[in-house]
């Protein structure tokens, strides 16, 4: 007791209240966000009958792994899973390279035409060509049914670009000056000085891009004409939305069309789809924690 008091300043009352409130609110947020996911996990391990009866919350009822066996034995699931991995990796690499280059260039105040270049990027934030012109463009470039239809049109996310540009701008000019004095050209500066100092930034961007490509389905849905090219998100969407929509369209549908995709199967697919991207977070986290510019500029 005595030592603790001696060591630090006693936190003020206001600060302690703030901490308490903080803890309560954040715990609430955690519960709200984690609960649905845990429910899905519980459902994926339960017997379908209990789910239908509304008896599954956080604890699986009628525990079994049949649904996992069913889903993992479906070759179409693994094909789409592989597609998702390939699309995510390729698209993320392309995106990171392009975004970094663009952002680094834009961060240099002495660049001529910088305003115009920023303008072009920002313009696309507010205006798009529209669905059909985009489709015609991608199709006539021959990108349809290739990974490039997914990777190229969405390669640069302007928001990410601006964040990255702001980050590069905040780097001390002296560092790059020092690099120039030591004989590095622009590329050398970027690769050997700036990027190693931007690990946290790049990691964040990788995470942003990877998550968004992993979760995206629309581009693939639009530009892929064959079932074996579709990512797992489309597979999942068809399973879930298809199951509800078929009954929604109503009277005209033949009995063959009424989809009966068991609740367990849906949950299993959700769990298997979310798991890998969830596993990425802890690995990237460590870049956030370690300091960014510790000791690079002195005095």
């Amino acid at each position: 007791m005595v030592t603790t008091r001696a060591r630090g300043v006693r936190p003020s009352r206001g600060y302690r209240i703030f901490q308490a409130v903080n803890a309560v609110v954040l715990t609430g947020v955690v519960v709200v966000t984690v609960y649905p996911f845990l429910t899905i996990v519980a459902r994926s391990l339960s017997d379908n009958a209990y789910i239908v009866a509304g008896k599954v919350n956080l604890v699986p009822r009628g525990f079994n792994l049949t649904a996992y066996r069913v889903v993992t034995s479906d070759p179409a699931f693994w094909t789409s899973y592989r597609n998702t991995v390939v699309y995510t990796v390729v698209a993320t690499i392309v995106s990171i390279v392009l975004t970094t280059c663009y952002a680094y260039v834009l961060s240099k105040r002495h660049l001529r035409g910088r305003t115009a270049l920023v303008g072009i990027a920002v313009f696309t934030m507010f205006f798009t060509g529209g669905l059909i012109p985009n489709y015609v463009l991608v199709t006539s470039l021959g990108l349809k049914n290739t990974v490039w239809a997914i990777a190229l049109p969405n390669a640069i996310n302007v928001f990410n670009l601006l964040v990255m540009k702001a980050f590069f701008e905040s780097l001390p000019v002296e560092l790059e000056e020092a690099a120039a004095v030591d004989g590095l050209d622009t590329y050398g500066t970027l690769l050997r000085v700036v990027l190693p100092l931007s690990k946290a930034m790049v990691a964040t961007m990788v995470l942003f891009y990877a998550v968004s490509f992993w979760n995206s389905w629309f581009a693939a849905f639009l530009y892929m004409d064959r079932q074996d090219l579709l990512p797992v998100t489309v597979y999942l969407r068809n399973l879930i939305v298809g199951a509800t929509d078929a009954t929604q369209t109503g009277g005209g549908l033949g009995a063959d069309d009424v989809v009966q995709s068991a609740a367990t199967i849906q949950s299993v697919t959700i769990v298997l789809t979310v798991l890998p991207i969830l596993a990425v977070y802890p690995f990237i986290q460590r870049y956030f924690v370690s300091g960014i510019l510790l000791g690079s500029v002195k005095g």
Partner: peptide
């Protein structure tokens, strides 16, 4: 076949017809 997931069949049909890229036979139209 140009395989389109049932979940979003109508949207893809619109895009394909609108872009002039539609297959010759377009079933499942209500």
């Amino acid at each position: 076949p140009v395989a389109v997931p049932l979940s979003d069949y109508e949207q893809k049909r619109s895009v394909l017809v609108g872009s002039g890229d539609a297959p010759l036979i377009i079933p499942k139209t209500y």
